[in-house]
């Protein structure tokens, strides 16, 4: 029991990220509506980005911006004092790319609606089969 409490305190963040990822995955597989699927895709994406950003967290570290940056070379910078900036960089670009892919997904959704006049997957499939 003591071990479990320890693991819970150390890892509860990861477990909630996995829950979010499960919500996204479920929406992508099981939802019938295309916009709902896109929302699920975005939730999945943000859950993974959340996980990546949390890797960079250091207990006792501060923001990855050095104080008194203007020509103050005197004080030595220690890596332990600052949060890891690398996951932030990778995920920052990933967020902007995710909105661009969201635009393409919505464009595809609009095209499908213009052709079949519905966004429901089963209705689209039955219309395709009728032809």
């Amino acid at each position: 029991m003591g071990d479990f409490i320890q693991a819970l305190v150390a890892k509860y963040n990861y477990w909630i990220y996995i829950t979010l990822m499960m919500i996204g995955l479920y929406a992508m597989i099981a939802k019938n509506n295309l916009i709902k699927k896109i929302v699920g895709m975005n939730i999945f994406q943000t859950a993974i980005i959340l996980f990546y950003v949390s890797i960079g967290v250091k207990k006792g570290g501060t923001l990855p911006i050095i104080e008194h940056g203007h020509g103050a070379h005197s004080h030595v910078v220690h890596a332990v004092d600052y949060i890891n900036p690398l996951p932030h960089v990778l995920m920052l670009t990933a967020i902007v790319v995710s909105v661009a892919t969201l635009g393409v997904a919505l464009a595809l959704g609009i095209r499908i609606y213009n052709r079949y006049h519905t966004l429901e997957e089963d209705e689209i499939l039955s219309q395709i089969r009728e032809k």
């Binding site: 943000t46 950003v53 923001l63 949060i83 996951p87 932030h88």
Partner: peptide
């Protein structure tokens, strides 16, 4: 979590434009 740049991006991109 201290990821201010990522938070800023998400506030403008995720909550705004998306």
């Amino acid at each position: 979590m201290g990821a201010v740049d990522v938070a800023f991006t998400e506030a403008s991109v995720g909550a705004g434009v998306s």
